[in-house]
């Protein structure tokens, strides 16, 4: 546009700016409307879907986990509120709260034995044993979801990954990297020795003994001086449940 002098030029420029703004607002409004419409359609479709597959979602753990995944991708959390539409429609809120309570119970009951760290698999098994009525209906995924809901309580429930295994922590112990490495090492046989820790992790003996002492203090490890080689073994109930350790040593 050629710059024209005088008051008329300025007025023309202002009018053009106004026109552009109006046009822009119109386009934006159109887009938002379209977006809103799409969202509404999507929501109703998702509701239809949930209604249609209500039973599958309730009964089938695999289906349930896929449904959760789908919801998460579009930013919908069916567990966000127990009073919300999803809970009323599916009743899954209650399901997870119930699981949460049972998980807390199991963690408390096994704490004297495992020091507040339990293998996710073992937790699931105990959970299934406790819920005899629908034994198959609880998956690991459900456990993880229920535990993530427990975080709201600030009670320090957390899932930590050690090697390939997932452990559920119900005590506020902070495990540092050294402790995690020892737990990972212990997964092979259920126990470690000081020698083994030094050798496999290339640590000094002081570092190994310090870390093991802390794990003992926290009740996560137990000593075993009974093997015929005379070397003290440190066992970790959280990586090898008592019942599954039978035969591991013989």
């Amino acid at each position: 546009m050629r710059r024209r002098p005088g008051i008329g030029g300025l007025q023309t420029a202002a009018a053009a700016r106004d026109q552009y703004r109006l046009l822009g607002e119109n386009v934006a409004k159109l887009r938002t409307d379209l977006m809103k419409e799409q969202l509404a359609t999507f929501r109703s479709q998702l509701e239809d879907f949930a209604r249609k597959h209500k039973n599958d979602i309730r009964k089938n753990p695999t289906f349930r986990s896929q449904f959760h995944e789908m919801c998460a991708k579009v930013g919908v959390d069916p567990l966000a509120s127990n009073k919300g539409f999803w809970a009323e429609l599916l009743g899954i809120g209650d399901f997870y709260y119930e699981l949460g309570v049972q998980i807390v119970e199991i963690c408390l009951a096994t704490r004297p034995h495992n020091g507040g760290l339990i293998n996710l698999l073992e937790l699931c098994n105990l959970l299934r044993r406790q819920r005899k009525s629908d034994r198959e209906a609880v998956s690991e995924d459900d456990c993880l979801r229920a535990i993530s809901k427990l975080k709201v309580l600030g009670s320090g429930f957390e899932v930590i990954s050690v090697g390939k295994k997932k452990l559920v922590r119900s005590v506020p112990t902070e495990l540092n990297k050294d402790h995690n490495q020892i737990l990972e090492l212990a997964q092979a046989q259920g126990f470690v020795t000081v020698d083994e820790v030094e050798r496999r992790l290339s640590w000094t003996s002081g570092r190994a003994i310090d870390a093991l002492d802390i794990l003992l203090e926290e009740g996560l490890a137990m000593i075993d001086d009974g093997h015929r080689d005379g070397k003290r073994r440190y066992w970790f109930p959280c990586v090898s449940s008592i019942s599954s350790s039978i035969g591991a040593d013989s």
Partner: peptide, 13 residues
């Protein structure tokens, strides 16, 4: 579980 055959040094355990 072998460690139950060794007296544990930590009080709670």
């Amino acid at each position: 579980y072998p460690p139950y055959f060794t007296l544990q040094p930590v009080r709670d355990t």
